[in-house]
Design a protein around this nucleic acid. Structure first.
Lengths: 223, 223
DNA sequence: GTTCTTATTGAGAGTGTTGTCAATAGTGAC
DNA sequence: GTCACTATTGACAACACTCTCAATAAGAAC
């Protein structure tokens, strides 16, 4: 970091001005740094904190450099959304693979989905996208959810017919995903209010999900 | 352009110009109008759309008038939060009353909670507060949730001891609230992706909640 | 060394939002 | 009628954010 001062070339005007040493990064490194900082700001202060000035100030670079790398402020935000959704989907996809291969149980899958929405603020980001109308970035989640449904359908025994199975699996999928998102957003606050530990909701979901997927022995109101 | 001397403030100096008729409202009416507009903007375009200029433009008044009534922009936002949280809690409170009086079943209660988070964008608002760190406004929700827990505990049969009952009830409460919030935020999007109808998640919750509250015949996860 | 590419920067314009301030205009009280 | 109160307004200042532009500098290629 501490480099000896080279011959300052302050355009021949102010010879005493220090030339503000520059760090020159590779484009990938600069983008990675910016996205990391933006994510940290998102988690710490909310979506509105992700501005070019805030990210640039956090990294000690000029905000114009961020425009150079991402094209615009919305370019940076879109890239952050894309990256976080990508991480979310790949995490869930790997869990789907294990479930499909019979190497994981439903309870583990619930844990993975909850963790995926919690880790790195993915749930908060998804909520932000849904709130601001940027739901097109959520499309990959829809794909992996459909993939998940497909895998669970194969892993489920065939009683009751394909239609009934599909209904149960889609219901269970919506249930898990919605609960995981809600838990990531407001779970901590609510748990503090009632004095419960962190894994409460996901544990309950893990015990209930098999009952949802199992063929209902008793018609519990189909309407 | 160049007025050489003091020009009397141009008011009414043009006899043909219509003097832009003012509507004078009562303070309550002005505040109600502003809050209604702000809520509409929140639902339509997201939290960032709630600006003084946007609300004022929507109502056809000047933004300074909003400052006059709410003190500041954050005053308007805080008042909106307070109002919506108040509606949410009163709705749930009335449901708690009916549940406490034995005039409603758990399934109805689930419907009411889900509707409360959905109606008027209360769920979106709660997510906004959680995201922006304004979670102090969520405190009334905590109170009504504790009230709810108390009422359900009374309505539950006493098998298993008070501690076990309390654990089951708080778990169920967290479960319902978290799922209702997640459903309000992202439920519509996810349902569109997998092609399910609107009541899917809440219906599932209604069928599962009695099992959560019932004494578990088998000791589940201990940790 | 020289040259080229480009990451990086500062200055500045343009826009949007919040807020201040004095002036205006309804409305009721007198 | 006059007066007081205040809801309402326009003009303006201050600030934050985005983005353009020309200039600079770090490193690679030669």
């Amino acid at each position: 970091m501490t480099q000896p001062k080279k011959a300052p070339r302050p355009t021949g005007k102010n010879p005493a001005k220090s030339p503000v040493p520059r760090v020159r990064r590779t484009p990938e490194e600069a983008r990675t740094l910016a996205l990391t900082s933006a994510r940290r700001l998102l988690l710490a202060e909310g979506p509105d904190a992700i501005t070019l000035q805030a990210v640039a100030g956090d990294l000690g670079m000029s905000h114009t450099n961020l425009i150079h790398h991402f094209g615009s402020a919305s370019g940076l935000q879109s890239e952050l959304m894309r990256q976080m959704v990508s991480e979310l989907t790949t995490t869930i996809e790997s869990a789907v693979m294990r479930l499909r291969a019979g190497k994981a149980e439903l309870k583990d899958f619930v844990d993975i989905v909850f963790d995926a929405f919690d880790r790195g603020g993915a749930g908060r980001l998804a909520a932000w996208m849904a709130l601001t109308g940027e739901s097109m970035h959520l499309a990959p989640i829809g794909e992996v959810v459909r993939d998940y449904i497909d895998s669970v359908e194969r892993a489920t025994d065939d009683e009751g017919g394909a239609a009934a199975i599909h209904e149960r699996v889609t219901s269970a999928t919506l249930f898990v995903t919605v609960a995981a998102l809600g838990d990531a957003i407001i779970g901590n606050e609510l748990r503090k209010m009632v004095g419960r530990e962190r894994e409460t909701v996901r544990k309950l979901m893990g015990t209930l999900l098999p009952a949802v997927l199992a063929p209902q022995p008793k018609g519990g109101g189909h309407s």
